[in-house]
Nucleic acid binder design. Structure first.
Length: 423
RNA sequence: GUGGGUGUAGCUCAGCCGGUAGAGCACUGGGUUGUGGUCCCAGGUGUCGCGGGUUCAAGUCCCGUCACUCACCCCA
């Protein structure tokens, strides 16, 4: 055991597998970019009050999972546990909502929750998220959901499903909530669950224990108590999803852990991941902007878990990204050849080719082995004999075919070889 | 915060009823003094997580402790 170890519960990625991590993030981000979302780079930590207000005082995230500390000025700050509150803060602070609506933004980066680590549950997690602010249009809900679905599909994933429901809004949820509470109070529940029923009764519906599930079989459901407006919104979202060719299942018992959600909520679930099966989730949050001191604008967005999506890829046997470290691997024999190849490597890199070289005076056998392990398509070998002849040997590693290339035109020769049979 | 499982080489792990530490992979060199992948040969590192106990003898049994891990809870 080394003297220092990584902080508990934080995944680390290194080559060659880190290529897959990057590829997952790029695919998810790409789907958002293609739908007209612009990138925001935001603080990793914010004023603690922002999250307490934005995420909700009664949520587990706020009550027991935040990395909170005092900075040297005595201010209480918190490592961001989710992305939406920070985006809203930035939108309000910089007046991004003064122009055309909707404001469409995406972000990618680390988030932090102090929880007991588990398979797929980390204290530092990577997320890609989007937010569309200022237009309460069901088609926008559908767009956001479709972006996530597209991202997962682009990766080659198929073993997941999309669950959706509607949580209503201020016009219907309070009445339903009271009705559900009445129902729950009559059940023989344990103290902890009873307490949850008082604080956030909706979350009781999500209980996984079979005996509790049985008690809840006849519980009233939000989808049966939606206001006409919320019902219409929900129906339209489903219609647009069908238009977009996005498959979904309705899960009227789905619950989200953050307080700000209204109307549409959704979750992408993968069955191969063990207990932590959600690879992405989100929904509409029409009251959040006002809650944080901005104008009363609606919003809809999601957060996708990059770490869990990567796990899903592994489970499904898909390996996104290119694990090869370079395209061309230079093998010099002797100092004169090395000087020539070092220069050539620099020229090729300037032209966009990924090039590595056998450093450290490796023998030919060892250098060729390094070339093989690098994943390069070509090895470029130069020895004393080649120097004398003015040649380099370009060897295609997959076939073993090798041909001489004039050293003087080596850059174009290599470029041609790479481009030639690439298509 | 509450349970279960596991800690042996860089990695994955074997190690029986207690008897002086093993394999595969990876790495390096050689077989091939200028050619990788397959094959063959050679090369080595272990406070057996840590502390205590039982024993002539502990990787192995007992107690404690720490770490990791899975699950509850919760969520991405």
């Amino acid at each position: 055991m080394s003297v220092f170890t990584a902080p508990k519960g934080i995944p680390e990625y290194f080559p060659p597998n880190s290529a897959a991590f990057l590829a997952v993030r790029e695919k998810l981000v790409g789907a958002a970019r293609r739908a007209g979302y612009g990138y925001v780079e935001l603080p990793i930590f914010e004023d603690t009050t922002l999250f307490a207000r934005g995420v909700g005082e009664s949520t587990d995230v706020v009550t027991k999972e935040m990395y909170t500390f005092a900075d040297r000025g005595g201010r209480s700050v918190t490592l961001r546990p989710e992305g939406t509150a920070g985006v809203m803060r930035a939108v309000i602070e910089h007046g991004l909502d003064r122009g055309q609506l909707p404001v469409k933004l995406y972000y990618a980066g680390p988030f932090f929750r102090y929880e007991r680590p588990q398979a797929g549950r980390y204290r530092q997690l990577q997320q890609v998220g989007v937010e569309a602010i200022g237009v309460d249009d069901p088609a926008l809900d559908a767009e956001v959901i479709a972006i996530a679905d597209t991202g997962f599909r682009d990766l080659g994933l198929s073993g997941y499903r999309l669950e959706i429901t509607s949580l209503g809004d201020a016009s219907c949820r309070p009445q339903y909530r009271a009705e559900l509470q009445d129902f729950l109070r009559k059940l023989p529940l344990d103290d902890e669950t009873r307490q949850r029923a008082e604080i956030n009764p909706l979350r009781v519906l999500d209980d996984k224990r079979p005996d509790v599930r049985e008690l809840l079989a006849d519980a009233p459901l939000m989808v049966d108590h939606l206001s006409p407006e919320c019902r219409e919104h929900y129906e339209q979202v489903k219609g647009h999803l069908t238009d977009l060719g996005v498959k979904f299942v309705e899960n009227p018992r789905m619950v989200r852990g953050l307080d700000y959600y209204t109307k549409t909520t959704f979750e992408f679930v993968h069955d191969g991941l063990g207990a932590q099966s959600g690879i992405g989730g989100g929904g509409r949050y029409d009251g959040l902007m006002a809650e944080l001191g901005g104008q009363p604008l609606s919003g809809v967005g999601f957060g996708l878990g990059v770490d869990r999506t990567l796990l899903a890829c592994e489970v499904e046997g898909v390996t996104p990204g290119d694990t090869a470290r370079c395209d061309v691997f230079c093998v010099p024999l002797g100092d004169a050849a090395k000087a020539r190849l070092v220069a050539l490597a620099g020229q090729l890199r300037a032209r966009g080719v990924r090039v590595d070289l056998a450093y450290g005076g490796k023998g030919l056998k060892g250098a060729m082995k390094a070339a093989d392990r690098s994943g390069a398509r070509f090895a470029l070998v130069v020895g004393e004999r080649d120097l004398a002849e003015g040649n380099a040997q370009l060897k295609e590693l997959s076939t073993g075919e090798q041909r001489a290339l004039p050293l003087d035109g080596a850059v174009t020769g290599v470029l041609r070889a790479l481009g030639g049979s690439d298509t």
